[in-house]
Amino acid sequence: SDLEELEKFAKTFKQRRIKLGFTQGDVGLAMGKLYGNDFSQTTISRFEALNLSFKNMCKLKPLLEKWLNDAESSP
Rank of each mutant, 00 (worst) to 15 (best):
N37C: 10
S73G: 11
L60R: 02
S73Q: 09
P62V: 06
Q41D: 08
D70A: 09
W67Q: 01
R46E: 14
S74I: 10
C58H: 09
N56K: 11
L50K: 09
S53T: 12
L60I: 08
K59Q: 10
K59H: 11
I18E: 15
Q41K: 15
I44Q: 00
S73R: 06
D2N: 07
I18S: 08
K66S: 06
D70K: 09
M57C: 05
L60W: 08
L64T: 02
F54A: 13
N69G: 14
I44Y: 02
L20K: 02
E65G: 05
K61F: 03
D70C: 04
L63M: 10
W67D: 01
K59I: 10
E48R: 01
A49T: 04
Y35S: 13
S73L: 08
L60N: 03
L68I: 13
L63P: 07
T23A: 05
S74P: 09
L60F: 07
L63A: 14
N51V: 07
F54E: 13
E65H: 09
I44M: 03
L50D: 04
N56W: 13
G28Q: 02
F9V: 02
S73M: 07
L68M: 06
S53E: 08
L29F: 07
I18P: 00
K55W: 07
D2E: 13
N37D: 14
L64K: 00
N56C: 11
S74A: 14
S73Y: 06
G28V: 03
N56P: 04
W67Y: 13
W67V: 04
L68H: 03
N37G: 14
E65V: 07
K66A: 09
C58P: 02
L63R: 11
F54V: 11
E72Y: 05
L68A: 06
S74Q: 11
E48K: 01
Q24W: 02
F47V: 03
P62Q: 05
N56L: 12
K59P: 01
F22N: 10
L29D: 09
K66T: 12
E65D: 10
W67N: 00
F47W: 03
E72T: 08
W67E: 01
G21V: 01
L68Y: 03
M31T: 02
Q41A: 14
I44A: 01
S74K: 14
N51C: 08
A49L: 04
E48I: 00
S53C: 06
I44L: 06
E48F: 01
E65C: 10
L52I: 05
K66E: 08
W67I: 02
C58A: 14
E48G: 00
T12Q: 13
L50N: 15
P75N: 08
E72P: 03
K61D: 00
E65P: 02
I18W: 03
E5F: 07
P75L: 14
M57G: 05
Q41W: 07
L6F: 04
D38N: 14
T12N: 15
K61C: 04
S53Y: 00
I18T: 09
